[in-house]
Amino acid sequence: MTNGQLRHRPDSLPPQTSSHGALGSPPGGDHLLFLAEALRTFHDTGALAPSGAELVNALVVPATSRPNRPISVLEVGAGTGAVTRRLAQVLRPGDRLHVVEANPRFAERLREDPVLAARRPGVGLRLSACRVEELPEAGGEVAGAAPGSEERYDVIVSGLPFTNFEPTQVRDLLDLYLRLLAPGGELTYFGYLGTTTARTLTSGPRRVARHRVVARLLRRFEATYGLGERTVWRNLPPARAYLLRSPGGQQDWAPAPAPPASATAPALALALTPEPDPNR
């Protein structure tokens, strides 16, 4: 996959319509539910509205530029399902989609979503109402889940609000994503523009310093594994999507044997000391 594919919507994407109209506009009630949960738990929600259509397209690019074989996709922090519904449209028979959403109200909405229920025959769908750190394959325990799962994913789409978290938690999440990705697998996530300035104007020095440390950590991660980024101005608020690839595999997505241990993703060892940082 190329940086150009991230910047421009692939022609292979199906039309952005469903039984609910434009997929960029979630089904009725989703905006209200999202806003209510954002006001109740903004630390975990991180936004006041679901992702818009252009941001959704940027985030699902790895699932459309893919090998000629079934793939496994993990979505973390699905919210009310703007990205999830798009993935359900572009995935093919034999593909698997694992959706992780810790908010029980969002998870219930996803279970009832008619677009997900009407996905293509043969597309597997699994919903885990927990944090990604609690998945068996992440070393955690989830009630009813088979122990010892070793599933790896070709694509991970993360909707988590990294800049709301502590630096150590962000570092652990990025390490986890690298462990869960198959060799050469791809990761997308996004951040809102202007958050450093907004945090400076509305928060105290400790929160501003924490925010800058997280921003620096993400920038180093992107410098190590990044393939490209895309600024999406037509989003509320404007956002930047990032595309990254785990070590190993082949860039043309041809199936390849697992790399030797020396080529597997290293733990993300980054200093967590604050320093001046330009706006993200």
Rank of each mutant, 00 (worst) to 15 (best):
R92H: 12
G122R: 04
F221W: 14
R105N: 12
V60Q: 10
R199E: 00
L55M: 06
L116W: 03
E229C: 11
T224W: 13
S65L: 10
L23C: 04
D252G: 01
D11P: 12
F221A: 01
P260D: 10
T200G: 14
P167G: 07
A143Q: 05
N57A: 15
E229R: 15
A209Q: 11
L193S: 07
R66T: 14
A118P: 01
S128P: 00
P50L: 03
W233D: 00
P183H: 03
R234D: 08
R212K: 13
A118G: 06
E186K: 01
D11G: 13
G81L: 10
G226R: 07
A138E: 06
I71E: 07
V100R: 02
P10L: 05
R219M: 04
V61M: 09
E112C: 10
E134S: 14
L97E: 06
L59Y: 04
V99Y: 01
T195I: 15
G28I: 05
T84N: 01
L160R: 00
R207W: 05
R105E: 14
N3A: 15
Y225Q: 05
V142F: 11
A138S: 14
N235I: 04
G94T: 02
V99H: 05
T196I: 14
H43F: 02
D95S: 05
E186S: 11
S25F: 12
P276L: 13
S19F: 01
H31A: 09
S25R: 14
L116A: 03
A118D: 15
I156M: 09
S128G: 03
V100G: 02
L33R: 13
P62L: 08
A49Y: 06
R216F: 09
L236Q: 08
A239Q: 03
P67G: 15
A143Y: 04
T17E: 11
W233H: 08
L268D: 04
A88P: 02
W253K: 11
A146Y: 01
L91E: 05
R131S: 12
R66I: 14
P167E: 12
A58V: 10
G77K: 08
A269F: 04
L48E: 03
L74T: 08
A263V: 06
L23M: 11
L116V: 05
R120P: 00
R126M: 10
Q89K: 12
E54L: 12
R179S: 14
A223V: 02
E101R: 08
V157R: 01
H98T: 15
G226A: 01
Q89V: 04
G24P: 01
R7H: 08
R199Q: 09
G29R: 03
R105S: 13
G249I: 10
D44T: 12
A38T: 10
Y153L: 07
V214M: 05
A265H: 07
A143G: 09
N57M: 06
L176Q: 05
G226C: 08
L33T: 09
R131G: 14
Q5H: 12
F34V: 00
D30L: 08
